[in-house]
């Protein structure tokens, strides 16, 4: 199973890499150039829970070439209509009780040992992995980016639009992105770039699960394009894989998204 997933991932990475060299594929739909802004809004809407709360168990596997693998589990609680989330780590024991609380533009990290909240940044790495704290925020591609280029490409079995995105403001973590959106409106892959165009990160959304009338990624792989090591003569990149299980739309108490709740959970 693992080999199959690796093969799929390698295939995806090859396709994403090839897209940089390949000329655009078949022409647009017969109706002309689609409304890419609307495409982004749809992509946002499909994964945003405006009318309900969302909670799920996230399992993160961090692979650092030459250093081994580490696994962490966290419960994630989201209230997209208020742009807030709470994350609490449940495994391993050393990290149990640590958490993150986002409210608006403020993000705090809680350490249960020191019993202290520290202001942190959405742009920081999550638990020193390739995921970022901003990855858990509700999707706002349409609001954060404008489309500067497009092409049609096939990504695995999906026919996709590849959009070149440029951040509208200077406070967006990744000022440039490349995004693959399949015809069903779901994001299948992204490449994140720095302001100067350095490729920083590649993300592949390998599978989705439907939750109500929305979608949640089932398995996501993030490759760090700058970090890695030579293993057996070949350069391997740092990778974070996370899976999302037990998604729920059950309403959460308002107290869930407070520091006090995180402190109590931490204890």
């Amino acid at each position: 199973m693992r080999r199959i997933l690796r093969a799929r991932l390698c295939g995806l990475m090859v396709l994403l890499a090839a897209s940089a060299l390949a000329s655009p594929l078949a022409a647009q739909s017969a109706g002309g150039t689609p409304d890419f802004a609307q495409m982004l809004r749809k992509a946002d809407a499909l994964v945003t829970f405006k009318d309900s709360d969302f909670s799920a168990l996230y399992t993160f596997v961090q692979e650092s070439p030459g250093q081994g693998t580490s696994t962490k589990q966290a419960m994630v609680f989201r209230r997209d209509r208020q742009n807030t989330y709470l994350i609490i780590l449940v495994k391993p024991e050393d990290d149990k009780g640590k958490g993150y609380l986002k409210s608006g533009n403020n993000l705090w990290f809680y350490d249960p040992v020191a019993r202290r909240f520290t202001f942190t940044s959405a742009k920081d790495r999550f638990q020193n992995m390739n995921a970022r704290n901003s990855d858990f925020t509700r999707s706002n591609l349409a609001g954060d980016y404008k489309v500067t280029g497009s092409a049609r490409q096939k990504l695995g079995k999906f026919d996709c639009w590849v959009l070149d995105l440029q951040a509208r403001t200077d406070d967006i973590g990744f000022p440039r992105m490349k995004i693959w959106i399949s015809d069903d409106g779901l994001v299948r892959g992204t490449e994140d770039y720095s302001f100067s165009g350095q490729h920083l990160r590649t993300t592949a959304f390998l599978a989705y699960q439907q939750v109500g009338d929305r979608y949640v990624p089932q398995k996501v792989v993030i490759l760090d394009e700058l970090r890695g090591a030579k293993v057996n003569g070949a350069f391997s990149k740092e990778r974070t894989t996370y899976t999302i299980e037990r998604p729920s739309l059950q309403a959460l108490p308002d107290a869930t998204f407070t520091k006090a709740w995180l402190e109590n959970l931490g204890e």
């Binding site: 200077d170 000022p175 920083l200």
Partner: peptide
């Protein structure tokens, strides 16, 4: 080597 910084607004930049 690649130097990574955050621009004044917070966007990641590399040089």
């Amino acid at each position: 080597v690649t130097l990574q910084v955050n621009r004044d607004g917070g966007a990641v930049n590399t040089v």
